[in-house]
């Protein structure tokens, strides 16, 4: 992903999110602190800080509230995965961290189409952007090992308007490894 000078990768993700939501009047982002958290200045109002917070705000701005979950339960599930995204995946991950993230997600997605079960939400979009740099480095064998993550990721990257300039990742249709 091309990172503009001074902008953190999280602000870049928000630019992708804006486009996928159909928001054409692009916002300008700043960054704050050691974590380079994105900051959005709202017209004459206070600024908003943080990837999940700004992403949630953009969804409301685009009037696509269904992406935040319809029921209280779904809303909480979406918030949970957004928090997981900013606390577990934003930090520099060790190989072991990455393994645990993929293993846990793989088990979680075993009986689900999306992170919020049957509904496509903001959690899927931000998790897709956040995992792209990890999935791109997986071997064919690893993609088979984390089969449910692969199926979900492939689904999201083909969702209209989400992938944009990010590279399309190839997943094999047929299993190559019997023990994966």
């Amino acid at each position: 992903m091309a990172v503009a000078a001074g902008l953190g990768p999280e602000a870049e993700e928000l630019v992708l999110l804006e486009k996928s939501l159909g928001l054409t009047k692009g916002n300008k982002y700043g960054v704050q602190g050691e974590r380079k958290s994105p900051v959005l200045q709202i017209n004459n109002g206070p600024s908003l800080t943080g990837l999940a917070t700004i992403a949630t705000h953009l969804v409301k701005q685009a009037k696509k509230e269904q992406l935040l979950g319809k029921t209280a339960e779904e809303k909480a599930v979406v918030q949970q995965w957004l928090e997981y995204r900013v606390t577990q995946i934003a930090l520099p991950c060790t190989k072991e961290d990455t393994r645990v993230i993929l293993k846990d997600l793989n088990l979680y997605l075993e009986d689900k189409v999306y992170l919020a079960r049957n509904n496509f939400t903001l959690a899927d979009i931000l998790m897709y952007y956040g995992l792209h740099h990890i999935i791109i480095d997986l071997t064919v064998q690893e993609k088979e090992k984390y089969l449910n993550v692969s199926r979900w990721f492939n689904h999201i990257q083909h969702y209209p308007g989400i992938r944009q300039h990010l590279s399309s990742i190839i997943f094999m249709k047929n299993r190559l490894f019997t023990n994966a």
Binding site: L51, T53, A72, K75, Q79, V86, T87
Partner: peptide, 22 residues
């Protein structure tokens, strides 16, 4: 809080994200 009918706002989201990350 959602069950009690209290929707989250930009401000509550921001505090919760800050709490989790900082």
């Amino acid at each position: 809080f959602l069950l009690a009918g209290k929707e989250h706002t930009d401000l509550t989201s921001q505090w919760l994200e800050w709490e989790a990350t900082e």
